[in-house]
């Protein structure tokens, strides 16, 4: 029986960027939905709307995480646990590219909070 491949770990690592993206989307969507339902969107902290601030901070954290995955995949190959050299050559760049794409997607998801009001429905 050959050495165990740690398939689940590797797949999770490979798609880590996308998983962070999904978590970010779930969080900001959920938060905004709750903020509008329970009307705490207007609460303010340091002069900024609370949920705007939270979404902004969470976006920054998610971006940081994406960059972390990216830099790990690019530089710290050994630490990624990809196993053999061949798999590393294949999965490492995929991990990095996915993290990069996810970072763009997270950024896009985070930006509207600066422009679009939180709770108004369509057409005002």
């Amino acid at each position: 029986m050959p050495m165990r491949e740690r398939f689940v770990t590797r797949i999770l690592l490979m798609t880590a960027g996308l998983i962070i993206w999904a978590a970010h989307l779930g969080f900001v969507y959920g938060l905004n939905a709750l903020a509008c339902t329970f009307d705490f969107a207007r609460l303010e902290l340091f002069g900024m709307a609370l949920n705007t601030l939270t979404i902004g901070v969470v976006t920054l954290i998610a971006l940081g995480a994406e960059l972390l995955v990216l830099s790990f995949a690019v530089a710290g190959r050994g630490a990624m646990g990809f196993g053999g050299e061949e798999q590393l050559r294949f999965m490492g760049p995929i991990t990095a590219t996915l993290a990069g794409l996810s970072a763009v997607a997270v950024l896009w998801q985070g930006l509207p909070v600066l422009v679009v009001p939180a709770c108004t429905g369509a057409g005002g």
Binding site: A105, P112, V115, A118, G121, A122
Partner: peptide
């Protein structure tokens, strides 16, 4: 993955909060 972040894309006209729509607009992009 991304295709799971689009579902509200079909609900743009249901009167959800604008900002929520924007998240899904971004994911659609």
């Amino acid at each position: 993955f991304f295709s799971f972040g689009l579902w509200v894309h079909h609900m743009f006209t249901t009167g959800l909060p604008q900002l929520s729509l924007s998240f899904f607009s971004a994911a659609s992009m």
